[in-house]
Design a protein around this nucleic acid. Structure first.
Lengths: 124, 124
DNA sequence: TCCCTTACGATACTTTAGGTAAGTAATGGA
DNA sequence: TCCATTACTTACCTAAAGTATCGTAAGGGA
């Protein structure tokens, strides 16, 4: 039995699923894997997310110790988001999703042109 | 560039995230990894999900070719759900989530008693 | 002096996903 | 006759996410 913030889990995969049980958090992690990013950069790269939802999700990830938020006291403002050590350890999770996605598309989708994943993320 | 059902993705991890962008699908996969299950069994094991949501999510997973639904013409009804070949290939994804969850709990949670994951799922 | 720009939000409102509670079908058993 | 069983539906309600607009604070230009 595991406890995280007074919440109870029978199994460690439940802990992970509970943290990433929404639409956006894993996407954000994915985009922070190789480089720290400013708010605006994340917003441009994950273009379907709204500003509001992005700020909410970033705060949630920060409160769960998965990302770090650094504010530079400048004008206009500058806020840089980065993965914490435990956040960086999510790489194998995303990597296995990346590989499964390729297999899924090979079977049920079509491939047109090349894989436009950011270079260096995985050597696949 | 990948296409799945006329939806466009730059990267294969996007395909995966798009399929599992809701609250319940990965939990359902997790519970089907080792054994095929009837509707009622899934409902009892994933006790927080409602009947309605479970049926919706099962139908969505079926339409994406990730689970198979077999109806036995009996009374009372019997419906057995199982993973398709591509569904079974999600094991590494869940396995990496399982491992990350343990690391996360070791750092930010507490462990009380033992891990109550179903035996045989992973030898960790 | 006033207004525009920039980056990171906050706020009010609408839409959609998910939750609650009840009902249905077909059969067998008390 | 009435109830239990299983796998759903259906009508209704709430919470999460999306849309659109506004706020802040410093510097620059007219």
């Amino acid at each position: 039995m595991y406890f995280v913030n007074d919440k109870e889990f029978k199994c460690s995969v439940g802990v992970t699923l509970d943290i990433f049980n929404d639409k956006w958090k894993l996407s954000i992690i994915w985009h922070l894997l190789d480089n720290d990013k400013r708010f605006k950069e994340l917003h441009q790269e994950i273009s379907e997310i709204t500003q509001k939802t992005l700020t909410v999700k970033l705060r949630e990830l920060e409160s769960k110790n998965i990302i770090h938020r650094e504010v530079f006291p400048e004008v206009p403002p500058k806020v840089v988001y980065s993965l914490t050590p435990i956040g960086k350890k999510l790489r194998p999770v995303l990597e296995s999703m990346f590989k499964w996605g390729i297999e899924y598309v090979e079977e049920f989708g079509t491939i047109n042109g090349e894989n436009a994943c950011e270079i260096g993320k995985f050597n696949t």
